[in-house]
């Protein structure tokens, strides 16, 4: 049990670092869903099934959907490695993406 806990916490912290460090925003969203999934396992380990269930529902379904819909609406796809410049609809910026 001890080593499982250590591993889950390590996965959680590593993916939290990945959220900040991954250059691609969609990958960061995937990493943040991994954070909340590991967090839900941690909540089960600390005997909080209610909280684990809320975190599972929110992290697995809701938060990812909201983030992805917002990102899609932003249209900022590339932001990093596989960058593909989007046509800019706004005048006078040029500093974007």
């Amino acid at each position: 049990m001890y080593w499982i806990t250590v591993l889950v916490v390590a996965v959680m912290v590593l993916s939290a670092l990945a959220v900040l460090l991954l250059p691609n925003l969609l990958a960061a969203v995937a990493a943040s869903s991994v954070v909340s999934l590991a967090l839900s396992v941690v909540f089960v380990i600390v005997r909080a099934p209610d909280v684990a269930m809320t975190e599972a529902a929110v992290g697995a379904g809701l938060s990812g959907v909201i983030l992805v819909l917002a990102l899609r609406r932003l249209g900022l796809w590339g932001l990093g490695d596989d960058n593909r410049p989007q046509p800019e609809r706004f005048s006078g910026t040029g500093d974007d993406a």
Binding site: M53, L62, V65
Partner: peptide
């Protein structure tokens, strides 16, 4: 099920509400 068994098993209005929202979305 999650909403109705909120007082017996883990779960309740918040979690069940999220599942219902996902169902309709």
């Amino acid at each position: 099920y999650i909403v109705l068994h909120g007082h017996l098993t883990p779960g309740g209005g918040f979690q069940g509400g999220v599942v219902l929202a996902a169902a309709f979305f």
